[in-house]
Amino acid sequence: MNDVLIEMHNINKTYCTGEVEFKALHDVDLRVEQGEMLAIMGPSGSGKSTLMHIMGLLDSFDSGSYIFLDQDIKRLNSNQAAYFRNQNIGFVFQSFNLLPRLNILDNVALPLIYAGEKRSVRFEKAYHVLEQVGLADWRDHRPSEISGGQKQRVAIARALVCEPILLLADEPTGNLDSQATKEIMELFQTLNQQNMTVVIITHEKEVAKYVNRIIKIIDGRVKS
């Protein structure tokens, strides 16, 4: 349980929008161990989303070092980063981000296309993770035909389908009622008990009680 998964050191990130410079992250140090369930909390504009994007290899950083599983992230080009994301990180978003024109099964199987899996393998794996989140019977439906809680479970299934090491959730319960929030958080807990590392970005105190560790971030600085 003590292997280090993520090691960030002195991460800085500045956004330039026209004339105005905005320092989103300020010398951020962060260490995540394998099997942890971690919440990153902070008010809006605190830089937590930026941290999540950098952690998920969706965004670059200006200075500092970021090691993910012995891999120096700074050395990856955009294609390598894409493949690294595909293989190691599963994303869960606040607004679910399912493709509305694909059915549930196709949505879940989508990452496997980019992993280069064969069609039969894709559907087998997608069906398997859908079963895990209890939505296998809904596989032929469109995302518009299911509830918010169900959508988020589909999104979690999609995040799991490539068997990642890290599950990265950005305000996963932001669009859900309290009952659905409870279900989703319990699902995260279950996954964590199966040794999945889970990092949740949130500003809801509700969520915090499900995690082992909380990191607070204010004005681009970590206060733990």
Binding site: L58, A82, Y83, F91, N97, L110, Y114
Partner: peptide
């Protein structure tokens, strides 16, 4: 745009 973002997040490369 959104679809492209989703696809990229889950592992689509520029070439894809």
């Amino acid at each position: 745009y959104r679809e492209i973002g989703i696809r990229k997040a889950i592992g689509a490369t520029m070439n894809d």
